[in-house]
Design a protein around this nucleic acid. Structure first.
Length: 509
RNA sequence: GGGCUGUUAGCUCAGCGGUAGAGCAGCGGACUUUUAAUCCGUUGGCCGGGGGUUCAAAUCCCCCACGGCCCA
């Protein structure tokens, strides 16, 4: 909605009209409607932390003035006095407004305030009759007028569509939502701390790539005009990070967005955040321990424990986590028999029997993984490393020394969801070329997600990449776990939605 | 892509063939220690959009838009 048209504010309902009239009254009383000269000295949380337990007598002895700024969230009015709640970035505190304490001018401003306005209050601390720590307002200023009413004070904002499209309202109305994003930031800080302590270097690699490599997924396509060149939003940073490893950056990591042009669900957003890291002179087995340590580090900092509840299920991160091979998982958890594991025709039949959409041309490894995704995945509730992946679905992983049909790779599952994917990196350029050629064949049979040939990358490998292991961890899914969020949209500030007219001027439009 | 489900006042919701409702917010009034303050009064709606059925549609049917959950 555009409220400003040729300098005039359009009136779209009575509520707005009333507020505009208040603005006019304040303006004609000579009051600056958008002042920026105040500097609040305190936050609500600081005051509550420092004086939350102080007795009334010791508060009375305090000589320094306190000042806060924030959004007016509640007004309990008594005519010549009132109690109000002010909310800043850290929390809420009560303030007492009284006509015989404030200046006439400030009290006039108070009478024109609405819930939702941004205000500044300074004064002294005291305790009310009900013993609540309160700021007695000696000065009050309006800093910014809110033209629209806030969501209802008791139920808050529950319409999920409005919550996502107008996240500002969600954040104002729901402290718990704000808390999720504070925790998200904290988790990412902890990851950086952990990586930095291990001497990893944080880097940034291209998001726009001439070839979308490093994963199996459909990319978004874009175009650079002056170079007249098609580009893809990256589906993974992998091939660039490994070039850095080849260049001598033996331990690197990147925390940034990947983009995949695929369906949207409670576990998938088209753009999502990934931690990807590479460690030279290590194997995927080393990374299993490393991952256990990383998760334990995060959990103990967030929860003070390695056990926590996700969607009413207790998750226990105490190492070591269960390890199971893809084949054993299929035998034990999908009810396949040994012969079907090795027989293409029987595997296909089994896959179709459990509802997988597989093609006759799909290699055996791919068929097995389809069955795994369909049947086994959702059963892996406690943290589990699934190991020994088929070569066919792992074009960038190092072959096992004991079985050339499988690779040194694991995926981590928690609560039935893939959280991490890691492998010992394939650093044999000849084998890498062969794998790309195999992927090209699958592309020809109609798999448009198969990996493309990347000669530049092979050329880089030909200079010699140290033996290295690498891992990607989905940050959004990790944050879901640690915030008990059921949907990925609850841990992404602005999840992708279809554009919609007339929804309040959201940035998603 | 398929199934189920939702869209009614600024917000939270009820109403499910017969004149559109409540609470909160707002507005007017009373009130200088409240905690979802209280008390009295009161404004506010293209019932998501379009088509149909019917004497009559928020309500039944169809299409569309935008969500949610589940499945692929």
């Amino acid at each position: 909605m555009n409220f400003y048209k040729s300098g005039e504010i359009m009136e779209d309902n009575d509520l707005l009209k009333v507020r505009l009239e208040k603005i006019a009254a304040l303006k004609s009383a000579g009051i600056d409607l958008y002042p920026n000269d105040v500097r609040p000295k305190n936050t609500t949380a600081e005051i509550l932390a420092e004086f939350g337990n102080s007795e009334a007598e010791s508060l009375a002895e305090l000589t320094q003035p306190f000042s806060i700024a924030g959004r007016l969230m509640a007004v309990r009015n008594f005519g010549k006095a009132a109690f109000v709640k002010i909310q800043d970035r850290k929390g809420q505190i009560q303030s007492y407004i009284a006509k015989d304490i404030l200046s006439e001018n400030a009290f006039f401003v108070f009478k024109k305030l609405d819930i939702g306005d941004i205000v500044y209050i300074s004064g002294k601390l005291f305790r009310t009759k009900t013993n609540e720590l309160t700021i007695e307002a000696h000065d009050l200023r309006l800093l910014s007028k809110s033209l629209h009413p806030l969501p209802e004070k008791w139920h808050g904002l529950t319409d999920v569509e409005t919550r996502y499209r107008q996240r500002h309202l969600d954040l104002i109305a729901s402290p718990a939502v704000k808390e999720i994003f504070y925790r998200r930031s904290r988790i990412i800080q902890l990851i950086r701390q952990f990586m930095d302590k291990q001497d990893f270097l944080e880097v940034e690699t291209p998001m726009m790539q001439p070839r979308a490599g490093g994963a199996v997924a459909r990319p978004f396509k874009t175009h650079h005009n002056s170079l007249d060149m098609d580009l893809y939003l990256r589906i993974a940073p992998e091939l660039y990070l490994k070039r850095l490893v080849t260049g001598g950056m033996e331990r690197v990591y990147e925390i940034n967005r990947n983009f995949r042009n695929e369906g949207i669900s409670t576990f998938h957003n088209p753009e999502f955040t990934m931690l990807e890291f590479y460690r030279s002179y290590a194997t995927y087995e080393d990374l299993m321990s490393y991952t256990e340590e990383l998760f334990a580090f995060i959990a103990s900092n967030i929860f003070g424990s390695l056990k926590f509840t996700y969607q009413e299920t207790e998750i226990d991160l105490t190492p070591p986590w269960r390890r199971i091979s893809v084949k054993d998982a299929l035998l034990q958890m999908a009810g396949m028999d040994k012969s079907a594991l090795e027989n293409h025709t029987r595997a296909l039949a089994f896959a179709r029997g459990v509802g997988c959409d597989v093609k006759d041309t799909d290699p055996l490894g791919k068929v097995l993984m389809a069955i795994f995704d369909q049947v086994v995945e959702k059963k892996l509730i406690q943290p589990t490393f699934v190991i020994d992946y088929p070569v066919a679905v792992s074009p960038l992983s190092r072959r096992s020394n004991t079985d050339p049909n499988i690779v040194d790779r694991f995926e981590l599952y928690i609560y039935g969801r893939e959280i991490a994917n890691a492998f010992s990196e394939l650093n044999d350029p000849a084998d890498q070329r062969e794998r790309f050629l195999q992927q090209l064949k699958e592309r020809e049979t109609g798999d448009d997600e198969a990996h493309e040939m990347d000669e530049d990358y092979i050329h880089a490998l030909e200079y010699g990449m140290p033996p290295t292991a690498g891992e990607g961890i989905g940050i959004d899914r990790l944050v879901m776990l640690f915030t008990d969020s059921a949907s990925i949209r609850d841990v992404i500030l602005f999840p992708l939605l279809r554009t919609k007219q007339d929804c309040g001027g959201s940035s998603n439009n």
